[in-house]
Design a protein around this nucleic acid. Structure first.
Length: 434
RNA sequence: GCCGUCGUAGCUCAGUCCGGUAGAGCCCCCGACUGUUAAUCGGGUGGUCUGCGGUUCGAAUCCGCACGACGGCGCCA
């Protein structure tokens, strides 16, 4: 064995090898035995299929091995593919040889498992059908976002992960010992993007960001993948179009390439195909009026909270966009609205199903003195940002950009209850292992 | 940062209110069964009851402290 016609389970289930003698390698998913027959359900990276063994049609040691091998043992099977209604999936392999490559120890994951235990054995749980479906959708989503930006003339450029300071306020930075000096893990490429955008004009990046926020919610990770873009000679409306475009493109690609996985997650490909621009748009003031009609009286200047975001997206099959937020509480680099000095040209793109903010973006402040003032208001020393301020001293031009949480996008596409399942090994305030 | 819930076999849990020899199902092991679908049936192995301290003749159970985890809010992507 091992030199025959090696096939994948997906091909078998499509009926491509029916009637043929094939070889298959994979891992035991379930086993059952009845007298002189053993049924071994085998999985590989493409699917699961039942292997049927008879005591008298395989070598004696092969039958014994099949009966003895525990779940997740690695196996090599040779046999004939037949269509059989009795088999789960409609196809099975009638084995004439069966070899155990590795006998697994007792696999700790059974039915009836607590969320906590599954997180403890995450390194084993990643083998599940559910997890691998999500990982495939994640793969397609990442590819689609790269594709979107490259197709629209953006350069992929890479900021450093180790930085002296942050952009969203110092309290959420992970500190690290840099040969005796304090350094931090990046929480956004913002400052570097604004330096690079004056060189490359249209830039993007997808990479990790780190936030030391003790947020115990279903949509926060301390380490997450951030898709960020920055564009020169552009305003808020220009980048909103790219946010809609990138998300729509990702939804189209996932619907086209992963329809089975989408269905497994409880969405339909049609739902994702309908996610096309433009998305419903409203100003912050509009949002407050809508909420007031629903009996939610929000004080002007307060950020929209989870409760309010849920109310606004209730029943919506596409994300919505809220623009023109009050300037108070916003980061220093966001541009004031020239028509309303109390507002900033900032927007959030908010997904339904409890996911909330997927994208946050803005036009950027171009005026040196306004930026310095904003930094001081945020409790920062402008001297520490002097290199960044050079972007406002040497050819400062209108520019805008956004950051998108890739796991939040995946959470929304896959309709996940919790963001941690959007990534193989989630990092949350309480857990950084395995 | 705030609020809440929980910790008993490898896993899921009961037992805690009202203190008295540690329980069930699944997993695993042994046996039976020639088409199982979470197979079924019979038998068996398996425990520092999260830790430390206190009350008591006696603590999984009552009290205190600690640790760990999960859920929700705030903040954000």
């Amino acid at each position: 064995m091992g030199r025959g016609f090696m096939v994948s389970i997906a091909e078998i289930l499509k009926g491509r090898h029916t009637g043929k003698e094939v070889e298959l390698r994979g891992w035991i998913y379930r086993t059952r035995s009845v007298g002189g027959k053993a049924f071994v359900v085998v999985r590989d990276a493409t699917g699961i299929v039942q292997v049927a063994l008879s005591r008298d049609s395989v070598p004696p040691d092969a039958f014994g091995a099949a009966e003895k091998a525990l779940i997740e043992s690695a196996v090599l099977v040779r046999g004939k593919v037949v269509e059989d209604k009795r088999a789960p999936g409609g196809f099975e392999i009638r084995a004439d040889d069966f070899k155990v490559i590795h006998f697994a120890e007792k696999f700790p994951i059974q039915e009836d498992l607590s969320e906590e235990f599954l997180l403890d054995v995450r390194h084993l749980w990643v083998r599940s059908q559910r997890m691998t479906a999500i990982f495939r959708i994640r793969h397609t989503t990442f590819g689609a976002v790269h594709e979107y930006f490259r197709d629209h003339g953006f350069w992929e450029v890479h900021p450093p992960m180790i930085t002296p300071s942050g952009s969203e306020g110092g309290s959420t930075l992970f500190e690290l010992d840099y040969f005796g000096r304090k350094a931090h893990l990046t929480q956004s490429w913002q400052l570097y993007a604004e330096a690079l955008v004056l060189a490359m004009e249209k830039i993007y990046y997808i990479g990790p960001s780190f936030r030391a926020e003790k947020s115990r919610t279903t949509r926060h990770l301390t380490e997450y993948w951030h898709a960020e873009m920055e564009q020169a000679w552009a305003g808020m409306d220009d980048v909103i179009k790219h946010a809609e475009g990138a998300i729509s493109h990702a939804c189209q690609r996932v619907a086209e390439e992963r329809p089975d996985d989408v269905v497994a997650m409880g969405r339909t490909p049609e739902f994702l195909k309908a996610v096309k621009p433009p998305f419903e748009r409203m100003t912050y003031d509009d949002a407050l009026k809508i909420l007031k009609k629903q009996g939610m009286d929000i004080e002007w200047g307060k950020d929209l909270r989870t409760l309010e975001e849920r109310a606004l997206t209730e029943g919506k099959s596409k994300p919505i966009i809220v623009t023109h937020y009050p300037r108070v509480t916003q980061a220093f680099y966001k541009a004031r609205d020239p028509k309303h000095p109390d507002l900033v040209l900032a927007f959030d793109l908010i997904g339904g199903d409890g996911v909330g903010e997927i994208v946050g973006g803005s036009e950027r402040e171009t005026d040196l003195e306004a930026i310095k003032k904003g930094l001081k208001e945020q409790g920062e020393d402008p001297k520490a940002y002097d290199w960044y301020l050079d972007s406002r001293r040497f050819g400062s031009v209108q520019h805008a950009g956004f950051g998108m949480g890739m796991e939040r996008l995946i959470q929304w596409i896959c309709k996940l209850d919790h963001i941690r399942d959007a990534v193989p090994f989630p990092r949350t305030p309480a857990r950084f292992a395995p």
